[in-house]
């Protein structure tokens, strides 16, 4: 059976097309669904039920313009209209993921990391950063369990607020909790895999412990700042003319994710 993936959109999300394509390429049924369709605020034929899907992805973009704070408005809408349903969805073990703005939303909703409070704050450069980064995968999350943890992946980042921070004063214990529970799923590294140690621009935003992505305790909710959906084809990589790849690193990543989802079916 083909897994059914819901890629959610609202006004200002802008990575839903390539995210849906990523899932189609790895054999899933992906549908782009507006939040309004999930909460019944539309005509009958447009309505959708969250529980018809095996996974829900919050894609990147500038939801509602992100004028207040990245992800603030989108998460507020989820909180008021869909949160209970989404909680049961997660409790059942279904997969929820967020990329970039989607990660910011899941963090704001406290669904990530879940056991400790975190926020994605403004990049240390204080600028929007669009550049490729190198990542090392870790942990048993939906997106990283089936990846080769010795392979370094390369995705682009494109964000202004990707600097993972914890509650001031609680940095050490928060980080310890994430480490102990295997919740750090991607870290920024040098091309050879050496830790970035917060060196700019290897770590493009100053994130603590070079964290690029985290999961919840169970691993079925995950989020990451870089964009795997933008490197599905080998020629999407910045250096493909000098370092040829068979497929894009993003495709490898979505394959690993869909394997995880399939196992749960």
């Amino acid at each position: 059976m083909k897994p059914k993936i819901c890629v959610m959109r609202i006004e200002g999300t802008n990575c839903e097309d390539e995210t849906a394509r990523a899932f189609r390429l790895v054999g899933a049924d992906a549908e782009i669904v507006h939040l309004k369709q999930l909460i019944g605020d539309c005509s009958e034929e447009r309505k959708r039920d969250l529980f018809d899907y095996d996974a829900m992805i919050f894609p990147g973009g500038f939801s509602a313009g992100d004028y207040v704070r990245a992800g603030a408005i989108w998460s507020a809408r989820i909180q008021s209209k869909l949160k209970n349903k989404l909680n049961s969805f997660v409790k059942e073990g279904r997969v929820v993921g967020g990329i970039c703005n989607g990660f910011q939303v899941l963090t704001t909703l406290d669904m990530l990391p879940g056991n400790v409070r975190a926020a994605l704050s403004t990049n240390e450069s204080a600028k929007f950063e669009c550049r490729f980064v190198y990542l090392k995968p870790f942990g048993k999350s939906a997106i990283t369990e089936n990846l080769d943890h010795n392979e370094i992946l390369s995705f682009p980042v494109a964000h202004m607020e990707g600097n993972l921070t914890f509650v001031p004063g609680k940095e050490d214990e928060s980080l310890k909790a994430l480490k102990e529970n295997d919740q750090i799923i991607f870290r920024y590294v040098y091309p050879d895999g050496t830790p970035a140690n917060r060196k700019y621009p290897i770590n493009p935003n100053g994130s603590i412990d070079d964290i690029a992505g985290v999961s919840n305790l169970e691993g079925n909710v995950f989020g990451l700042m870089p964009h795997p959906e933008r490197v599905l084809d080998s020629f999407n990589h910045f250096d493909w003319t000098r370092n040829p790849r068979k497929v894009g690193d993003g495709l490898i990543t979505f394959k690993s994710l869909i394997e995880f989802i399939k196992k749960k079916l």
Partner: peptide, 14 residues
Amino acid sequence: IRQYDHVVRGNTAL
């Protein structure tokens, strides 16, 4: 260039 998102839509080939 770094301030412009030049890879959104996932179709940038060079």
